[in-house]
């Protein structure tokens, strides 16, 4: 039996890990979204409305919220994934702001004061979700699809030239990523007890990115490391008191100079060789069914 504090820390860690793993899937294709908090809020609001207003169980609501977030993710991905890194960043950011503005003026969901009355997130439920995602990622990274993610991340033009359906693959990755983020949002809402649109602003999006960039994009467990470190940092470094924020900022400055590839990862970005690409291309018609 865990005491309330341990349980709160474990749940918070779990949600951070789920968010990081979800984000890793799109980061693995080299597509950085600056508005993942939007999928979190879509998930959180969907699930909260279902549990609070319709008395659905958290488990079912959570799955529905994942689905809703996936649809939104596919839509945004379809619009934006052809763009360059910076433009993708800006359009996803703008999307998150638009979602926030719409939620702010949605009276049914409480407007700016949000919803309350959600509870029920348990460490067990989170463990199951994380377990499912890790098994998925384990097989994904060992599959042809995982290889194609890497190909797109390392050199999108080369991957396209080899005939990979870059847009379709990235949109799919983006939708799966949004779905996991949506589920994490649903679980987070049922732990925080209260949700307001303001909780899902730019700082939350940024935190999700930091999990993955700090951990390193190369392996998915790097994202887990990043999530754990960033969640525990405020607890470990609490003694810094009002100098915490300054230390936190400087930590990033130092890290980007010393280990721009993140904590985990070899740092030679261009490990992906043309030979590996060639291995992917001949059978692509059969394997991926597009071209």
């Amino acid at each position: 039996m865990m005491d309330a504090y341990t349980e709160a820390v474990v749940i918070r860690l779990g949600i951070a890990i789920l968010l990081a793993l979800g984000y890793w899937i799109t980061a693995a294709t080299g597509k950085f979204s600056f508005g993942h908090a939007a999928f979190m809020s879509i998930g959180a609001y969907t699930a909260s409305i279902l549990t609070v207003k319709f008395d659905w169980s958290l488990e079912t609501s959570m799955l529905v919220s994942g689905l809703t977030a996936a649809v939104a993710g596919a839509f945004i991905g379809w619009i934006a994934l052809r763009l360059t890194i910076l433009y993708l960043a800006i359009i996803t950011f703008a999307f998150a702001e638009i979602v926030k503005i719409l939620l702010d003026s949605w009276d049914y969901a409480g407007g700016a004061s949000g919803l309350f009355g959600m509870r029920g997130t348990t460490p067990q439920l989170l463990a199951i979700c994380i377990g499912v995602v890790i098994v998925y990622l384990f097989f994904l990274t060992r599959s042809r699809k995982g290889l194609s993610y890497e190909a797109i991340r390392e050199d999108e033009q080369a991957a396209r030239a080899c005939g990979l359906g870059v847009t379709r693959i990235s949109v799919e990755a983006f939708a799966v990523s949004a779905a996991i983020t949506g589920v994490a949002g649903a679980l987070s809402a049922h732990e925080t007890l209260i949700i307001t649109p303001a909780q899902f602003g730019a700082p939350q999006s940024l935190l999700i990115i930091l999990f993955v960039v700090l951990g390193g994009v190369q392996y998915f467990w790097g994202a887990i490391v990043g999530a754990v470190v960033l969640t525990m940092l405020p607890i470990w470094f609490d003694f810094l008191e009002e100098y915490y924020q300054i230390t936190y900022g400087l930590l990033f400055v130092a890290l980007m100079i010393l280990r721009p590839q993140g904590i985990v990862g070899s740092g030679t970005e261009r490990r992906f060789t043309m030979r590996a690409l060639a291995r992917l291309s001949p059978k692509r018609g059969k394997a991926d069914g597009d071209g």
Binding site: D3, Y5, A8, Q199
Partner: peptide, 15 residues
């Protein structure tokens, strides 16, 4: 950061 409260309050209470 309201999120810190999610762990800070249980810590105050149980520790």
């Amino acid at each position: 950061d309201p999120q810190t409260l999610v762990t800070a309050i249980p810590q105050l209470v149980s520790e």
